[in-house]
Simulated assay, not measured.
Amino acid sequence: MKKGHKIILTRIQLCGSVFVAFLAIIISLSIFLYNENFHALPKIPYGYQSKDCMAVEIDGNVWKGILFLPEGLRLNDLLKTMNIENISKIFSTRNIDASMFLKDCSKITVIRRNNDDTFIDVENLTATTRLVLKRPININSASLEDFVLVPGIGEKTAQKIIGLRNKQGKFKQLEEIMNIKGIKQKKFEKLRGYLYIGEI
């Protein structure tokens, strides 16, 4: 950097950076507490954060935290670990089958009710949480606030990506963002690890 040049962050980038740092601290604390108190979930094998493990966030009134799990586990494996054996009394606003395989970057909300019914919801992790966990974000659904959290994407570039997406429809290949002025091969190589092609 040349002498005399200053780094100027927009308000949204500054707020986003502070939020990501705060979320990183919260997630790190959750992982620490999870590892210290793993006896609460004894039956599921777990691991530390790595590309070979699924990152699954658990929310609700039964347990909260982020688990790093091996692939191939089903939702009912997780529920049994939470002592929810009667899977016939599961209710959801979505069509959720207890035998479904868990997916990377899922958020599972489990609410146990007084009458022994269990409410379950499964959705995707937020873009912010994905980035903190070193997972890419969906270029076809990310908002401007999501994009500016990606290193190398400022507010103007984020607006251009969203503008191109609105104009041409959803991206089919990541390389399409090189049609945006200012994103050449070198910059694209830095960005591609933070983005993926997903459904809207």
Rank of each mutant, 00 (worst) to 15 (best):
K156A: 11
K43P: 00
L14R: 15
N61P: 13
H39C: 08
G72A: 12
I25V: 13
Q159H: 03
L102G: 01
G47T: 00
E199Y: 05
I84Y: 12
N114R: 10
S99C: 02
L9M: 14
G163Y: 08
F119T: 09
V132C: 00
G193T: 06
G152K: 13
N95I: 09
T128W: 01
K6G: 07
G169A: 05
N37F: 14
F38L: 11
I96W: 04
Y194T: 08
G154Y: 04
G60S: 06
V150M: 04
A21V: 08
I108H: 02
N114L: 12
L69F: 03
N124P: 00
S99N: 12
N179M: 11
Q168G: 09
M178N: 05
K187Q: 08
M100T: 08
L73T: 05
G72S: 04
D121R: 10
K156V: 10
K170F: 04
T93V: 13
D117M: 14
L174C: 02
G60K: 10
E36R: 13
R113T: 11
D77T: 08
A98V: 14
V18K: 15
F91W: 08
H5N: 12
N37C: 07
F171E: 02
I84E: 15
K51Q: 05
I162G: 01
I12W: 06
A24G: 07
G72I: 11
L9S: 13
D104E: 09
N115H: 07
E71H: 12
G4L: 11
I44F: 03
I162W: 03
A127Y: 07
D104Y: 10
I84Q: 06
D77Y: 07
D146I: 01
G152E: 05
I108Q: 03
K186Y: 08
S92W: 07
T157H: 02
K6I: 12
V132G: 05
R135Y: 05
T126W: 04
M54F: 08
L191N: 15
N83G: 04
I84S: 04
R130G: 02
L41F: 03
K170G: 11
E189L: 14
K2Q: 11
I139S: 02
A21Y: 10
G16V: 02
I66H: 09
N83M: 06
